[in-house]
Design a protein around this nucleic acid. Structure first.
Lengths: 341, 341
DNA sequence: AACATATTCGCAATCGATTGCATTTATAAT
DNA sequence: ATTATAAATGCAATCGATTGCGAATATGTT
């Protein structure tokens, strides 16, 4: 038994002997409607089980009250924190959030972007895929004046608000910490340099070495896509090329983990023989043995900030063309893997 | 410079001196339109940069081609696997997926459900929140004949397709394995019993004990919401009440982890002194020390199955009222924490 | 009481695509 | 050539809410 019948504002209007316009305005809390009629309308709407037809409204107003979020993987702690931050702010402002993951693939990202676009989201928040090096699918939005906010993995050549963590600073302090622990030969397993975040982490590493008067050795830097297996390969290569390494700074925790596992497997002790640090503070980092020192990014805050900037743009479609790049502070989390005993 | 102008099917029609109906049909590959005109229309649509107005179409057809997914937390490995499975199937069939998380809160879940409902999703896939004990927000969908598929945490009193993992079997084999390892006093840290999955896991545990002729000791079962801190409390209580425990089966990996951490902290050795097993195979379980034996659920497959059942219902809005409950097999993953040395 | 002003409310067009039915055009059969 | 049939296209209503503008009503002022 299904009642397929949907009551519309016209039904309410008819019942109350008023016009649909008034019903519409009352339901939208338009102050032009008197309190008395508003009450009456609200009540009978309730009684009649009225549910606004969002589609009709969106169609008419060209606003969907929806914001699209594209992340590489919802499964990463950092990204899901950001998403929670976004949701919090968005829901509070009456926006619906639709989340999609690119799986770090360009194709998928482009397809999602097109879908969101034709579905007329009011704005999007995105952290681009590792593979993405070309941005026509995002320029779509700028072209149609649809607000877009980048976070974490941002794109230089597109003008938009950008929320990033202080990757440079985080990496700088990681490296500085390792140096303070007595490390002299610090290797770096970095990410793909087309992504600014990895470029910055690497730059922070380089700068810290420089400030400490340690000469940079390019054979101690390996860049890959920071997956588990690649971390294992990287640490092997590093050791082969340079077996005096006494510390490794990995651009993410996954790589730090696989390095640790490999190092343990060949009999090296962490942190006694080699110090290891990661980046991003994945949940496992706290609980593995040894626990992994890392850098905490304020994901939730970044998400909140991204959402509020986006919503600000959506609501005041003002001419305010000053795009901000907000750098959020990171925290060094010192655990067992980096403290010399 | 933004071009706010959107070309519609009417623009195309005018340019080609045909009717909008024909354009609409051609663009939808309606076979009633001749190949020649279809080609012509497609081409000028392309040239004019036509983008269909999904909102208008959805409004008219009352189909949004969107399916809503509600999970407790996108951050859990199991759930994100399911989501990936859903996405795969959905995208292939031209559906958009919108994901939301309830954070295991009833309020949030209800709010999301209402939002999805008024946004006229074509169907929803849900695993309910721990807190959820009342289902009016879901009955909404049945009432309006909107297909709904449950997975993992299903609801008995609502008729719908249900995809679950073999929790009973998984738990049974966990317990059997522990018994085979020589355990005699096997404790259980279970989840809230309003959720069928935890009831089933507990039932599997009980049955395995029974089959092995081991008498059930109710003081060796503790139910909570399986969070980290609660695991710690639970294992403390268990030990206090019964310090001859030689194995613990935890209904999730988080609790298994915190048990292990606590046990290690008081000088117990895992697995030598106490065997520990979890459930769900979180990523950390493989990498902690000792690595945690657990049960692997086929998340991706469950997601695929859920999505295809849902889409089937959406497209053939047939009368096929036989609702399936599909039980997917689980795999025992034996690691260090449960193998007596 | 008459007029000015402010409050409320209704009319009717509109958004863009879809679709049942009618109409025109092409093809086949006699 | 004529009629019957099939194929291709057009007409026009429709979905439900929004909103600019004008009309009606209420309130205030002298």
């Amino acid at each position: 038994m299904t009642d397929r019948f949907e009551t519309t504002i016209h039904d309410i209007a008819r019942k109350l002997n008023i016009s649909a316009s008034t019903v519409s305005r009352a339901l939208n809390n338009n102050p032009i409607i008197s309190e008395a009629t508003r009450q009456k309308i609200r009540q009978t709407a309730e009684e009649m089980g009225y549910r606004p037809n969002t589609l009709a409204a969106s169609f008419r107003t060209k606003r969907t009250n929806t914001i699209g979020v594209i992340v590489p993987l919802i499964n990463r702690h950092f990204f899901s924190s950001v998403i929670s931050g976004i949701e919090e702010v968005a829901y509070k402002s009456g926006f619906t959030v639709t989340i999609s993951q690119s799986n770090d693939q360009f194709e998928k990202e482009a397809k999602i972007a097109h879908t969101l676009f034709t579905n007329r989201v009011d704005g999007i928040i995105i952290s681009i895929a590792m593979e993405t090096r070309q941005f026509d699918h995002l320029k779509l939005f700028s072209a149609k004046n649809i607000p877009l906010v980048f976070f974490d993995r941002v794109v230089d050549e597109i003008d938009a608000h950008k929320i990033v963590a202080d990757d440079f600073g985080g990496a700088y302090f990681v490296t500085k910490h390792l140096i303070e622990q007595g490390a002299k030969q610090i290797a770096h397993i970095g990410g793909p340099l087309n992504l600014k975040i990895y470029e910055n982490r690497q730059a922070g590493y380089v700068k810290a070495l420089e400030d400490a008067g340690i000469k940079l050795n390019h054979s101690m830097i390996i860049n890959n896509t920071l997956r588990r297996e690649e971390g294992t390969e990287a640490i092997q290569t590093l050791l082969k090329d340079n077996n005096t390494i006494d510390a490794v700074f990995c651009a993410n925790d996954t790589t730090a983990l696989s390095s640790i596992i490999y190092l343990k497997s060949i009999g090296k002790k962490i942190p006694e023989d080699i110090l290891v640090m990661g980046f991003s503070n994945e949940p496992f980092s706290e609980v593995v043995t040894p626990s992994i020192s890392t850098v905490q990014q304020p994901g939730f805050l970044m998400g909140q900030k991204a959402a509020s900037l986006l919503i600000e743009q959506i609501t005041n479609k003002s001419e305010n063309h000053e795009f901000l790049t907000i750098v959020m502070p990171t925290d060094l989390i010192i655990r067992e893997s980096s403290v010399r005993k």
